[in-house]
Amino acid sequence: METQQTTAAGLPEDVVAQVNAVMMEGFALKADQLLPTAHLYEDLKLDSLDAIDMMVHIEDRFKIKLDGDKLMEVRTLADIYQLAADVLSKKSFEGPSAVH
């Protein structure tokens, strides 16, 4: 069985890297700004329009569908990593048709 590399917080490294890539490419953020504790609105200066676009970019990148209600609760970058990792984990368990 394939072993997944994880961060200290137990998140898949690939998910973190790809979400970070979305944040840098889509919102002109720099790597050193992308701390897991970074608040999306207060630290990274994103707004409601950015939040919608962030969701679209992440969905397109991972070929997943995020839960809009859960997205409303997201505050930090770590929350985004977790949200994406949870959906990917579910996708891996149930197969692609269950999530998209």
Binding site: S48, L49, D50, I52, D53, V56, E59, D60
Partner: peptide, 11 residues
């Protein structure tokens, strides 16, 4: 392609 507005950016 997607049969609706899915995936459209806010802007």
């Amino acid at each position: 392609e997607r049969g609706g507005p899915e995936g459209q950016l806010s802007t």
